[in-house]
């Protein structure tokens, strides 16, 4: 009997000890879970932070690139506009020099007299200068700008086309210089617009992708408008060789 009692006592002591050890184990497990949760949260926040910062910086770079490309467009337009007074001057001196050949070009020919054509060119230039905006974001603003500049282009082209009908004028060095300046101005505009569109495409794509669209909205970045291709413009030539 005493032995059974001792045994029971031993058993109950063992149970008591086992109950105390189980309580201690539960405490440790809770701390680990808390640490895991904290760690995961920290990593998520870190992940979000890195992504946000780098995405934001990338968007800033793209916006700067688009602004810089727009600056080139403006430079090209201004360069052409600056060309017009010289062009008009050159044509008037050219007319004086080639008076005999040009007699048939002025009043006697059909269409607009040359002097009026020159006046219209000057007016188109002033109009184009007035329409210029900086860093347009709205498509309609860009379309309006494009319209006035295109009118100026057409006026300049029409003026030169007038002389192309006369071989003796067309072969002169003076005409060659005028034509080169005009074509050069138009080509610079074309190149600048193309590069602007590429920069805008890059920006707009980044603002549509995730997480750029969220970061962009939060930071207030807006998509930009494109220069639309002129009618009859060819596709970009393949340069792969």
């Amino acid at each position: 009997m005493a032995w059974a009692s001792a045994k029971r006592s031993t058993v109950s002591n063992e149970s008591q000890q086992g109950g105390n050890g189980g309580g201690q184990a539960k405490g440790v497990s809770g701390a680990v879970v808390a640490a895991i949760v904290a760690g995961v949260l920290f990593l998520i926040i870190l992940f979000a932070g890195i992504t946000s910062v780098t995405t934001y910086n990338g968007l800033v770079n793209r916006v700067e690139a688009a602004d810089e490309a727009w600056g080139q467009v403006e430079t090209a337009y201004q360069r052409r506009a600056d060309l017009v007074p010289n062009l008009v001057d050159s044509v008037e001196r050219f007319m004086e020099h080639e008076r005999e050949t040009l007699e048939s070009v002025t009043e006697a020919r059909e269409g607009e007299p040359l002097s009026k054509q020159l006046e219209a060119l000057k007016a188109a230039r002033q109009s184009a200068q007035a329409e210029r905006a900086s860093a347009p974001t709205r498509a309609e603003t860009l379309a309006k700008l494009k319209g006035s500049q295109q009118q100026l282009s057409e006026r300049m082209t029409a003026l030169m086309a007038r002389f192309e009908a006369y071989p003796q004028l067309r072969s002169s060095d003076q005409f060659m210089r005028l034509q080169a300046q005009l074509e050069g101005a138009e080509n610079r505009i074309s190149v600048a617009r193309q590069r602007y569109n590429q920069a805008v495409s890059d920006l707009n794509s980044a603002l549509q992708r995730i997480p750029g669209r969220w970061i962009g909205q939060f930071a207030g970045f807006e998509p930009r408008a494109y220069f639309e291709a002129d009618e009859g413009a060819a596709d970009a030539p393949s340069v792969a060789e």
């Binding site: 870190l46 890195i50 992504t51 910062v53 780098t54 995405t55 990338g58 793209r62 690139a65």
Partner: peptide, 9 residues
């Protein structure tokens, strides 16, 4: 995060 943020521009 780095891969997402690095979007060649």
């Amino acid at each position: 995060a780095g891969f997402i943020a690095w979007q060649p521009w």
